[in-house]
Amino acid sequence: MIEIDPTRRDLVAAFWENPKGPHSPELQQLVNKLRFEPSMRDKYVVVCTKPYEEWTLAQLPGQRGKPIRMHTDQVFSNLNDAERAIFKLRWEAHTGQTLD
């Protein structure tokens, strides 16, 4: 299994520039690892809160019937910003390093 190399800020910068891709093979591998989480519990998603205009960060409960946790302090006006925000949260969780 590949491990995330915290020194590869070049990959972070490339993602920041173009969250939707296409990515280089190395960046795609990093993105796949961040997206492929072992559980759906607490998985970050976004909920569209105004059609085509606004998306809010949220976390899945991992079990049907449970409420989705909405983070109403993190609202995005486009999906690229939402991609960056979730990438940042996952990067920090994996590496312990803060992204500015």
Binding site: N32, F36, M40, V46, C48, I68, A82
Partner: peptide, 17 residues
């Protein structure tokens, strides 16, 4: 909302309505 490979397959964060 229930499949761990849904997001990697989609190539983007999961967007819910």
């Amino acid at each position: 909302m229930n499949t761990i490979f849904a997001e990697p397959k989609g190539g983007g964060i999961t967007v819910l309505g």
